[in-house]
């Protein structure tokens, strides 16, 4: 499948997800069994995106700042995100830590 097709399928699918209940006139609320799992989509998906990107290096689990600076940088980024919720600051701080550790390693 071409990348163009992938982009359009995700685009149409995303639109239909957003339209779903708005288009369905007559039904007001979501059933409880659907509401509970949806609550955990964001934390589960985001953690699944972040963890491999920061904890794995050259295919293996690596927390050492000298060989995998991303793990320590991510830890610092989590603390800043928790305290400030400032996207730009988190990106700048996280990148700076990586650059610093790359430079000294």
């Amino acid at each position: 499948m071409t990348n163009v097709a992938i982009v359009f399928i995700v685009g149409i699918g995303t639109y239909l997800i957003r339209l779903s209940f708005v288009a369905a006139v007559g039904r007001k609320t979501m059933p409880e069994w659907a509401l509970v799992p949806l609550r955990f989509v964001a934390p589960a998906v985001l953690a699944a995106l972040v963890a491999p990107a920061v904890l794995l290096h050259n295919g293996g689990f690596d927390l050492a700042p000298s060989t995998n600076p991303r793990a320590l940088a991510a830890l610092i980024a989590i603390l800043i995100a928790w305290k400030t919720k400032n996207t730009a600051l988190v990106i700048v701080a996280g990148m700076s830590v990586v650059w610093f550790l790359q430079a000294v390693a």
């Binding site: 964001a42 934390p43 985001l46 953690a47 995106l49 972040v50 990107a53 920061v54 991303r70 940088a73 991510a74 980024a77 989590i78 995100a81 928790w82 919720k85 996207t87 988190v90 990106i91 996280g94 990148m95 990586v98």
Partner: peptide, 14 residues
Amino acid sequence: FAIPLVFLVLLVPA
């Protein structure tokens, strides 16, 4: 590396 950093900003409040 900015990709996981952006996701972290979304993850923490979630």
